[in-house]
Structure formats: structure tokens, C-alpha cells
């Protein structure tokens, strides 16, 4: 775990995460001119919790219910054969579906872009949204595909070898974004 590594350093604390999400929520509303047709789909595991938080923020700001769900992309990944077998996450589409909606994909870290590529494929098997947008808490660069985020909580320049870990109350007990490794060329 990143937080136990001696060289791990915190780059975002709980307050900064909260403020970043609030800003992203405002941006979403501003860009969409309100909450209409918005559907938030978090990518397991931590994207799901972030999508729920964003939905709650939107509800506070606009007093409107924005549906949120989860979109597991495991079976759409292009790197399955490079890793040991992964267990599947849950896909849960809100009752209204995704057809003609403005679907916002929510993930914790944007890195190579491959997860988002898989998410776009998974999404297209679920229906045909009117617009798909991408919101991430951290963009750490090093894209391998022509994909960019529409809403970013924090741009975080990193070396390729560094590991960025998002910790959330719901999954990890506390909120923080930490970076570990990389300085000495440690590839893990």
C-alpha cells in the first residue's frame, strides 16, 4: 500500500479533495447549463465513490437528483492477458438508462487513458448517450491514447515510474492522494 511506503508523500489532503470535487461539480453544471440529463458513472472501485460524492454535491448546489451508478470495464480492458485474472466489478446503470443522456465517466486517476478507452467501449454496449464527458480527481499525465479529461480535480505532474494512489473514506478509511516511488527509478 502506498501509504505505508516510507517515501510516500501526500499531495492532496481531505480538504483539498473536497474543494476539488466541489469545483468539478460547479464546472459540470456550468458546462451542462444545469443538471438536466446528467448521469454519473463511476469506474470501480474508487470512481464509484467519487461519482456518488459528485452526485451529492450536485444535489446540494442545485437541489436536483442526479443519478449515479457504476461501470465495470474489466471485460473491456486491453491488458487482461498481461496480468493475473481479475475479479469483476459491478456495473449498475441507474434506472433511466444512458440513452440520450449526458454521461459523465468518473475515475480517480487518469494515466494512460486505457481504462477510459475500455469504459467508452463498455458504455457503447449499454446504450447511446448524447454526450460523454470525463471527470477525474487526478490527471497525472503520460497518456498512451488520444484521450483527455473534461474536468480535472488536480493536474499532477509525475514521473512514469511513480505511483499515484487515491485513498477515500469509503474504501480506505480516509481521504488523501499520495505519490510514492519513482525518484530512484523504482518501477513498482
Amino acid at each position: 500500500m502506498a501509504e505505508t511506503r516510507p517515501d510516500a508523500r501526500t499531495v492532496l489532503d481531505a480538504g483539498e479533495i473536497r474543494r476539488a470535487l466541489t469545483r468539478v461539480a460547479h464546472e459540470l453544471l456550468e458546462h451542462n447549463k444545469g443538471p438536466r440529463d446528467l448521469v454519473l458513472l463511476g469506474i470501480p472501485t474508487r470512481g464509484v465513490a467519487l461519482a456518488r460524492r459528485l452526485a451529492a454535491r450536485l444535489a446540494e448546489i442545485e437541489d436536483a437528483e442526479v443519478p449515479s451508478g457504476s461501470l465495470d470495464v474489466t471485460m473491456y480492458r486491453d491488458d487482461l492477458r498481461r496480468h493475473p485474472t481479475r475479479s469483476l466489478g459491478v456495473t449498475e446503470v441507474p434506472p433511466g438508462g444512458v440513452d440520450d443522456k449526458v454521461v459523465v465517466l468518473v475515475d480517480d486517476v487518469l494515466f494512460s487513458g486505457r481504462t477510459i478507452r475500455a469504459a467508452l467501449d463498455a458504455l457503447s454496449d449499454l446504450g447511446r448517450p448524447r454526450v460523454v464527458r470525463l471527470a477525474v480527481l487526478v490527471d497525472r499525465g503520460h497518456r498512451e491514447l488520444p484521450i483527455r479529461a473534461d474536468h480535472v480535480g488536480k493536474n499532477l505532474p509525475t514521473s512514469h515510474a511513480e505511483r499515484v494512489k487515491v485513498l477515500l473514506e469509503e474504501t480506505d478509511g480516509s481521504d488523501a492522494v499520495v505519490i510514492a516511488g519513482g525518484r530512484s527509478g523504482d518501477p513498482t
Binding site: M75, Y76, S87, L88, T91, D125, L126
Partner: peptide, 19 residues
């Protein structure tokens, strides 16, 4: 558990997965 997720995909219109 994996079978439950698979079963869920089989309720969709597009049942085929690229896995």
C-alpha cells in the same frame, strides 16, 4: 460472483463482450 456479473450482462440488449 463472476457468474452474477455475467448473468447481468446477459440481461442487456447487447449480450456480447469483447473479453
Amino acid at each position: 460472483d463472476v457468474a452474477e456479473q455475467m448473468a447481468a450482462t446477459q440481461q442487456r440488449e447487447i449480450k456480447k463482450l469483447p473479453t
